[in-house]
């Protein structure tokens, strides 16, 4: 996700890593739509818009395995790192930059955004 001219992007603290269950997710409510923050089996974290490219299912509610999540509504498999649906399905959901620092999870988010993120 690259910054657009009219939007300012900031790193914001979201939660402790321990608040994220391994192979699980949390929803971050954001003014412009929910964001799903995922955690792999270890300490790897990912963030996607909480909206399946198929029919908008909440990806945060899916089953996480490897670096993928299976959408709870109709079972599409979405890559956590790139938001891309695994073939034969086609589609992509926007992702967000996320990082881990001293056991804390940070998301890079549009500050007071002028436009919706997606």
């Amino acid at each position: 996700m690259s910054a657009t001219d009219s939007t300012l992007w900031n790193w914001q603290r979201v939660c402790d890593l321990k608040d994220l269950p391994p192979l699980g997710a949390r929803v971050v409510s954001h003014a412009q739509g929910d964001i799903a923050v995922f955690r792999g089996a270890g300490e790897e974290v990912f963030a996607l818009l909480d909206r399946c490219p198929h029919k908008g299912g909440p990806l945060s509610q899916g089953i996480v395995f490897g670096r993928h999540v299976s959408c709870p509504l109709h079972g599409w498999t979405i890559g956590l790192a790139d938001g891309v649906a695994v073939a034969p399905d086609q589609g992509c959901t926007p992702g967000f930059e996320v990082r881990l620092d001293g056991g804390q999870v940070y998301l890079r988010l549009p500050a007071l955004a002028a436009e919706p993120v997606a």
């Binding site: 979201v14 929803v27 971050v28 409510s29 929910d34």
Partner: peptide, 9 residues
């Protein structure tokens, strides 16, 4: 409880 609580920034 974390299952039911969203994180609000």
């Amino acid at each position: 409880s974390h299952e039911y609580e969203a994180i609000t920034l």
